[in-house]
Simulated assay, not measured.
Amino acid sequence: MTVALSALARQASAAMPFRPSRLPPSQVPPDGLSRPDARVRVTLHALLDRCAVLGPDLPNGYTNHLPMALHALAGLGADADRLETFAQRYLARQGLAWADAVDAAEAPPPARVLPGWQRLRGLADAHGTLREAMAQGLALHGTGPWVRGVLPALWPGLGAAALHGPIRVAHALQAGHAGELASALAFWASRWRPLPKVAAADPLPLADWAAALQAAAGQLRLEAPPISRRLAEAGCSPLYRDLLARAPQALPLGEALARLVPLAVQGYAMTGDFTLLHLVTGLRAVRVLLPWLPPQADAGVLWRMVVAGWLAAPLHRATPQPLPEPDSLPACRPGRPCVRPPAPRTTTM
């Protein structure tokens, strides 16, 4: 499996060029929403308004995905009726309703916390106060200045809530909804938990390091259900420290992202593991956030997240699947669904 994954990662690096956007934030078009149907945008924003009074977590303790899912559906071409139907079904499936939420407008305003919101990072109970701080900041300073000022403080805790913190912020930025952006930034801040730093020691060439990472798949055999708990456990392991010490952490952030995306994509494609799926969507969020991050943003945060995510994945229970040949991949175009490619002609690994 290790040899196959290493070869696939090298193939992906060559076949899937990845150049992070260098456009300023004001010129970055929202993926899939650059020319939306007017009614879809109105409906999406109306639903995101209502999402603002829902908590960030579901009754079962897992993350509330509704705001992110609504934006993703709109980007995939869902019409207004589809968005409304999805929202109602999602709430019903979780045992919730719009009326279950407390109207944020009726809640007493918290004390002004703009100068000191960072002291509340990592406090789940402070989500409401943090949301008010983020809303105040956006209103006073505007989206661009406030987000560029906040992200450096949030960046070290990239793995917040199993990467749902940055994922939700990326969706909110692309949706262009200030209320959802305030909620998303507050969610990231309230679940903020940096992974341990490890100083580089004899870094390996990227291909050799990727092989070492892949060889470590499933060695920790972590079974705790919440991904965030497994990430924390992985970050305390000697294997995490060893892999991180040998990682080429000196690469700039954009280049590191370009090298790590194929590893996460191919790992998920071969195993279907849910934790690696979070890595894929989390790295996609980082790509969206790149124009908002300072050029000197610590790339080591990304390496820490990928190593912990890979070790947290219960790959000892995964059955690797062969990938399709490159020429059999479907041609996907906006407005046209992808057609499943024919069965791959590869040997089992």
Rank of each mutant, 00 (worst) to 15 (best):
Q94P: 00
A234H: 12
M270G: 02
S13Y: 04
R93V: 01
H45S: 01
P166C: 13
L243R: 00
A107V: 14
Y268L: 09
L302K: 03
Y62L: 10
V113T: 12
A299M: 00
C51W: 00
P56V: 06
Q214P: 00
L206F: 15
M305I: 05
R304W: 08
H278I: 05
R121E: 07
R246G: 06
L213G: 01
E255I: 03
Q88D: 07
W209S: 08
V265A: 12
G282Q: 01
E84G: 10
R230Y: 07
M68H: 07
A212E: 14
H45F: 00
M16E: 13
R304G: 04
L54R: 11
L239R: 13
L231V: 10
G179F: 01
P67G: 00
G267C: 07
A308S: 10
P342S: 08
P36G: 08
L130G: 10
S21M: 01
A343G: 09
V147Y: 05
A38P: 13
V42Y: 09
L23P: 03
L260G: 03
L158Q: 04
P30H: 09
Y240H: 08
G137F: 11
W188M: 06
R148Y: 01
C332F: 13
G122E: 11
A211D: 15
L158S: 02
A182C: 08
P30V: 04
D49N: 14
Y90S: 05
R345N: 14
V307S: 00
L120H: 12
W310C: 04
Q214W: 12
Q11M: 03
C236E: 15
L66S: 00
P166S: 13
L91T: 04
R41P: 00
A14G: 12
R317L: 14
D273A: 02
Q266I: 12
P262T: 09
G165N: 04
Q136C: 12
P344S: 10
G61A: 10
Q321K: 12
L253Q: 02
V286W: 07
A92D: 09
R345E: 15
F18K: 05
R345V: 14
P326C: 08
V147I: 06
D57A: 12
C51D: 03
Q321T: 10
A182Y: 05
A285G: 06
